[in-house]
Amino acid sequence: MSEELYANLAIFVLSLLVGFEVMSKIPSTLQTPMMSGANAIHGVVVVGAFAIAAEANNWLLYVLTFFAALFAAINVAGGYTVTDRMLGMFDRKPAKKEEDKK
């Protein structure tokens, strides 16, 4: 195996360990917003799909990169949407005044 493969594998394993440590420290009440916010990290997948598309030289790679970018973009948008909805659940409703009750 090449040195580049070892370096990439080491980065992958370290990112798994750091991700596990970060996620294990999050309280359960914030788990869902944290996970949906973490889905936004899939923007990196979009950039990766663009990088692969730049190197593509046949129709199969173009199709695969299109679907990779599409699914990553859907995941990014979904992550932000779910985060917005979850955080909206914590908003306090304005208190009604005495005059509104009459």
Rank of each mutant, 00 (worst) to 15 (best):
L61M: 09
P27S: 10
N57G: 14
M89F: 13
P33V: 00
E98I: 09
K96G: 03
V47N: 03
R92M: 14
V46M: 08
G88C: 00
I11L: 14
K25R: 13
V63F: 13
M34L: 04
M35K: 01
S2F: 11
V45C: 06
M1P: 10
A38V: 07
E21Q: 02
M1N: 06
F66W: 13
A77W: 11
I74C: 06
A10R: 06
D91Q: 12
F50W: 11
S28C: 01
Y80A: 06
A95N: 10
D91M: 10
A95T: 07
K102D: 04
V47K: 05
A68P: 02
A54W: 15
F66M: 08
G19H: 12
V13D: 02
N39I: 00
L64G: 05
F71I: 02
T29E: 15
T29P: 02
S24P: 03
L14C: 08
S2N: 11
P94C: 03
L16Q: 08
E21S: 07
L61T: 10
S2H: 14
S15M: 07
N57L: 05
N8K: 13
A40C: 11
L9W: 09
V45N: 06
G37N: 04
Y80D: 05
K25C: 07
E3G: 12
A72H: 01
V47H: 03
D91Y: 15
L9Y: 11
G88T: 04
D91W: 05
E98D: 08
I26L: 06
E55P: 00
I26G: 01
I74W: 10
L87T: 08
I26Q: 03
L60W: 13
A56Q: 08
